[in-house]
Design a protein around this nucleic acid. Structure first.
Length: 872
RNA sequence: GGGAGCAUAGCUCAGCUGGUUAGAGCACAUGCCUUACAAGCAUGGGGUCACAGGUUCAAGUCCUGUUGUUCCCACCA
């Protein structure tokens, strides 16, 4: 046993535990055949910007869950992902390259990847530091995973197996292309900005000379790529023209008029020019009507395709083309408008939709199973409303474009033969074409979407596609913890990938949490400069306080604003626990944690209360209601344990009675130790530190059993009796405060009650806590009670000879007011009980509590009336 | 356009499947350095639960509508 320092210093406490952790022998995930496996998966922190508090959420929740599960007899493991920020990292690297006047092409792939690794390591280490400081107990080796051979193997297996089933195909599709960065962007990387622009109305003459159609466009230069004009087949103005052709101005190309739903009769002229290569909708229209595709822009946004504007920038060409249209009389009008323009989120230049060859995963067969497992409840979302978000997306899912024109990531395992032109798809790098055995082959230069490998995370980290012991023991995993912003990107893809590759959903529960926002409610981001550094918060208040702050005070799935003041409150709570523990230790002479043979009334009360708490906490944790569980433990420690029980014990601890002293010590030590266990998952550092200082068995608090409800510690009747005394203490304190009685004034208390035994056994602490000289229990109301202050409670009437402090008129007024108030309540009760429908329809238990309540009110009113009568 | 969330004390938020006189922290007021803790103790003030209907013996809680607000998805020729 050792002493706790007088001052609680989170830094000191937490650095000490951190050293233990570094030794590694407490916090190691392991297989244990005697225990049930429990696995958690958390999403990768986004390392685009500086790390901020938002990322602490996943880690904290999963760590609370892991510790709790471990203490509840599970072998636990969590799979943290910190390596999946491929695109973001590349962007960072490109920024640096640009500063150095280089492009990735100058460096070559190898050098470029080296540079990426630098960044990755830098950010990765920062994350490790954060995780450690938060107290996370993960298995670190799994972090350095994504780009290593194991991950690459899994990715190739997944790709090839999907390909062999015909679920992967290559096709043309419209992608977002940044002509400045000369790269494709995912939908998520495109920022839509409202910009001022124009509608150019252009006349397309019918080829047979019988008139013309008018189309409107915001990008007139794309007319070079037009291959049709669409009208709505229901449109009475144009439906007779379907099948005829128009002649494309300036180009002279003859293009058909097609009927398609895409043309909105209400919008513009009702005619739409169709440019399959440069607009996603037009692309679809083109497929439906089997239209030719004319590519008219190159990768740097210049006109291409054999026109006289070839090589000209698209905006220059726009001016030239509009001028020529006007000159030749095809331009009908120019109308100013505002429209949303997609821009590159890096360089903020306009992106161009461009048709190009991409790899796709066919989603329909995969989505079917992914929908089923959620609908059948094999995968459950917590809170369940997020299942709707998921299903909504999955029902409308489009084929997944998995190729990226980046240098960072897993290269697509496809080789093209330069002789026969055929493709070879292989798990191992081939040295020859599978078809003609030519050695002249080259690998596809595209890489896979970062989410393709992320989707395999729950099983690839465990060794898949090999049949490993880890995979066998920990898969399927149990809980995925993540923010709602990542449901589409990752959760959905993990689910269908797991179902497809392992034939099992990768987890049974998806625990969704909200986002942490700044005090103004804004999302934390680097550009806004409002990110809060978790390490800084930890330095100021401690990791325990931060963890507790994050876990409590909001409901699952809702966003939470971060206030440093709330952290302070949590730090104060830790301090409270620290000091309570110090108090227990100062009074400790026993060396073994063991409950005494006999228990005092207040012992039974606190044990009973603690016992109920364990049951409630267990129930809340089972339902993933971490915040509620933590709040209940907080309330128990501060209110029940510190404010009441420790105060109640002081009489015995400072008294002459040796046996009573030991008895109190034993109960105090027991309750404190068990409470530390309950709190440990939420505040691992301080609880461990205190536990180590107390007489204890076993190496660490973390590996103790989590407390559960025990029949032999349940004393409901005794608890109720003590509550009666506490109620009286509260009432007397309240009256004293109202009357401004100085603490030094210690009157003698006379009281009448129906439960004298309860008050007799509580004499000492009643006098101490209500600041009384002594107490006499009377069999009946005193004769001369008119000369005393009377305080009527539900279980006793207290008489205090302090009437010189009281203005009798004010006292009468107060009593009358209180009487009236309670009569009002009672009247309500009577009305309720007189209601025939209530009696017959409400459950019996509810009716009974209402009856009890009425009875208690009757007693209280009788007491008040008696007091008034005696006042005269 | 489709979907979801939120609206409760001055501030930030709890309030689970309807059932006491709606709670907590912070802030505020009053009195206390009571030998664990002033990062504390005791006591107190403060709410027409956004608005309007409905269901029910009973509504902060369930249903419908309205208003305000936040977010996601899609579209914008």
């Amino acid at each position: 046993m050792k002493e706790l320092p007088k001052i609680y210093d989170p830094k000191q406490v937490e650095s000490r535990i951190y050293r233990y952790w570094m030794d590694g022998h407490w916090f190691h995930a392991e297989r244990d055949p005697d225990k049930k496996p429990f696995t958690i998966v958390i999403p990768p922190p986004n390392v685009t910007g500086q790390l901020h508090l938002g990322h602490a959420f996943d880690e904290t929740i999963q760590d609370v869950l892991t510790r709790w599960k471990r203490m509840s007899g599970y072998a636990t493991l969590w799979l943290p992902g910190v390596d999946h920020a491929g695109i973001a990292t590349q962007i960072k690297v490109e920024e640096v390259l640009r500063k150095e006047g280089l492009t990735r092409f100058d460096l070559g792939r190898e050098k470029f990847l080296e540079r990426v690794w630098d960044w990755k390591n830098q950010y990765g280490n920062r994350i490790v530091e954060q995780l450690k400081t938060l107290g996370s107990s993960c298995d670190w080796d799994r972090q350095r995973f994504t780009m290593d051979a194991q991950c690459a193997k899994a990715v190739r297996e997944a790709f090839c197996s999907l390909y062999e089933k015909g679920y992967i195909y290559k096709g043309k599709r419209i992608i977002n292309w940044c002509p400045h960065c000369t790269t494709a962007l995912s939908d998520a990387e495109v920022e839509y900005v409202e910009k001022k622009g124009f509608f150019w109305h252009i006349r397309y003459p019918l080829t047979d000379g019988s008139g013309s159609l008018e189309v409107a466009t915001t990008r007139p230069e794309t007319m070079l790529g037009d291959s049709a004009v669409a009208v709505n087949p229901e449109d009475p103005r144009y439906k007779d023209l379907i099948g005829k052709t128009v002649t494309l101005p300036l180009v002279g190309r003859e293009i058909p008029i097609v009927g398609d739903e895409h043309a909105d009769m209400e919008f513009g002229t009702g005619c739409v020019k169709i440019t399959p290569c440069h607009d996603p909708n037009d692309f679809e229209v083109g497929l439906r009507h089997d239209l030719p595709q004319y590519l008219m822009l190159d990768g740097e946004g210049r006109i291409t395709g054999g026109y006289k504007w070839d090589g000209m920038d698209r905006y220059e060409a726009r001016k030239a083309i509009v001028a020529e249209l006007e000159e030749q009389g095809y331009l009908v009008s120019i109308e100013p408008c505002t429209h949303n323009v997609g821009t590159c989120y890096r360089c903020h230049n306009d992106v161009e939709p461009l048709a190009s060859d991409q790899w796709f995963v066919k989603m329909e067969p995969l989505a079917k199973e992914a929908i089923r497992v959620v609908e059948d409840g094999e995968v459950r979302f917590v809170p369940d409303r997020f299942a709707k978000t998921y299903l909504n997306w999955m029902h409308n899912v489009r084929d997944w474009c998995i190729s990226r024109q980046l240098w960072w990531g897993h290269q697509i395992p496809v080789w093209y033969c330069e002789d026969c032109g055929k493709m070879t798809v292989a798990r191992e790098d081939p040295c020859e074409c599978a078809h003609c055995h030519s050695k002249r082959i080259h690998q596809d230069s595209d890489v896979l979407d970062t989410w393709f490998s992320s989707a395999l995370w729950p099983f690839s980290t465990l060794g898949w596609p090999e049949k490993t012991e880890d995979l066998d023991y920990f898969y399927p995993t149990d809980v995925l913890v993540t923010g709602y912003d990542i449901i589409f990107f990752w959760v959905a893809r993990m689910i269908f990938s797991g179902c497809e590759h392992t034939k099992k959903p990768p987890f049974h529960t998806v625990l969704i949490h909200g986002l942490i926002r700044d005090p103004q409610g804004k999302k934390m981001s680097k550009s806004a400069g409002n990110g809060v550094d978790p390490i800084q918060v930890i330095n100021d208040y401690g990791a325990d306080a931060l963890r507790f702050n994050i876990i409590t005070g909001n409901s699952p799935g809702n966003d939470m604003r971060f206030y440093p003041e709330r952290c302070e409150a949590m730090r104060n709570f830790a301090n409270k626990l620290w000091n309570a523990s110090r108090f227990v230790m100062m009074n400790l002479s026993i060396e073994k944690n063991q409950l005494p043979e006999t228990l005092a009334l207040e012992d039974k009360w606190i044990l009973s209360k603690f016992n109920d708490l364990t049951r409630e906490v267990g129930e809340n944790m089972d339902k993933y209601e971490l915040g509620i569980a933590a709040q209940k433990i907080y309330d128990f420690i501060w209110d029940s344990l510190c404010d009441w029980y420790i105060e109640l014990c002081k009489a015995r601890l400072s008294g002459e009675d040796k046996a009573a002293n030991i008895q109190a010590q034993k109960v105090l030590l027991y309750v404190l130790t068990e409470t530390l266990k309950l709190l440990h998952p939420f505040m691992p550092f301080i609880t461990e530190e205190i536990y180590q200082a107390l007489p204890h068995e076993g190496e660490a608090l973390m590996i103790q059993d989590y407390p559960v409800w025990r029949e032999e510690l349940s004393f409901p009747a005794e608890s109720e009796r003590l509550e009666k005394v506490l109620d009286a203490i509260g009432a007397i304190r309240s009256r004293r405060s109202e009357m401004n009685v100085p603490p030094s004034r210690r009157p003698h208390l006379f009281l009448t009650t129906e439960d004298p035994a309860a008050f007799e056994s509580g004499r000492d602490y009643l006098c101490r806590m209500a600041m009384l000289e002594n107490m006499t229990i009377l069999p009946a109301a005193p004769e001369d009670a008119g000369g005393m202050v009377t305080i009527a409670t539900r279980f006793a009437v207290c008489y205090l000879p302090m009437n010189e402090l009281v203005d009798m008129e004010k006292e009468r007024a107060r009593l009358t007011k209180e009487l009236e108030k309670n009569r009002g309540f009672l009247e309500n009760q009577y009305r309720k009980l007189a209601n025939e429908k209530f009696i017959s329809r409400a459950p019996a238990a509810v009716v009974q509590t209402e009856k009890d309540r009425a009875q208690a009110l009757e007693a209280l009113i009788a007491n008040l009336e008696e007091s008034l009568r005696q006042l005269g």
